[in-house]
Design a protein around this nucleic acid. Structure first.
Lengths: 147, 147
DNA sequence: TTCCTCCGTTTACATTTGTAACTCTAATAG
DNA sequence: CTATTAGAGTTACAAATGTAAACGGAGGAA
């Protein structure tokens, strides 16, 4: 299916995620509106939010556009790319042998729509055709077996 | 199925994960062995590793036990708990509406065993019985709709 | 025209993380 | 008994992160 994108994804800190989510949802947004929306969720000072925005711009995750002497922010990567990138990053440092169990836990805890479930089932059915019987642990340098 | 554990999970940094994985795999390990194994993967100095170990102990993720004037380290939480906790933590800051898509991407990219796939299929089949048709975006305070 | 306000920029500062040298003490080699 | 060494503890220091005050310019209120 899609390519792995994680390599290019800048590290996004938790606070930055909160802002990015608003930007993604609004598409193109003035700092003022962004600050107001953000403050409705977290009691951060204007300064704090502005700092975060500048850092996001520096990281290349947001870009600005001057519009009648104010700025409008837009994301440079899609929310999906960012989400997939972060998720893959996380999974990269999990024991290969146990990724399946973690995924199982997630699937169990996350609220999924009927459609999501169907999509997952389709991918799984496809993968089942060539899935291995076991995956080795990769936690030790010499590839010793886990558990 | 299992309870959500994330609340109690201390933040584990990437470097710390690497050490924890070794500890989990070995179960109970002398710092010396740990350092050697770690250095076979990353060229960190002994000092660096010892610092990380102390931080992990301070965070309560590892505990020590004196054994003939050396220390043995053991994890205080299971690898599974830690993995689930981190994964849930990550998913917590994703747009509710798009968690399904992210999961799909993961399932697609991660190497799963036949057994993992079966387990996932079972959970999905179960969830399908009561899954909603749609999940709302929760990126904005006022719950405006995404996309 | 002058002052206030809105917005962007600079500076600040504590905490966490990555990375490591130095020190102290007990065991060990001579 | 003394010099070396292995482990543990202490100190260090830069970069990233969370959080924010202060500053400066431009447009609008008076």
């Amino acid at each position: 299916m899609s390519e792995s994108v994680q390599d290019s994804i800048q590290e996004i800190t938790p606070s930055e995620w909160e802002l990015m989510r608003i930007v993604w949802t609004k598409g193109k947004i003035y700092s003022r509106e962004l600050i107001d929306l953000m403050q409705a969720k977290r009691s951060w000072s204007d300064s704090t939010i502005k700092t975060l925005l500048r850092r996001l711009v520096k990281k290349g995750l947001l870009k600005t556009e001057k519009e009648d002497r104010r700025f409008r922010y837009t994301a440079t990567i899609s929310e999906t790319e960012a989400m997939n990138g972060s998720a893959e990053q996380l999974f990269d440092h999990l024991c290969a042998m146990k990724k399946g169990a973690t995924l199982l836990n997630l699937v169990d805890h996350v609220t999924l729509t009927q459609k999501d479930i169907q999509n997952l089932q389709a991918v799984l059915a496809e993968k089942a055709k060539s899935a291995p019987t076991e995956v080795d642990c990769d936690c030790l340098p010499d590839n010793a077996k886990c558990d």
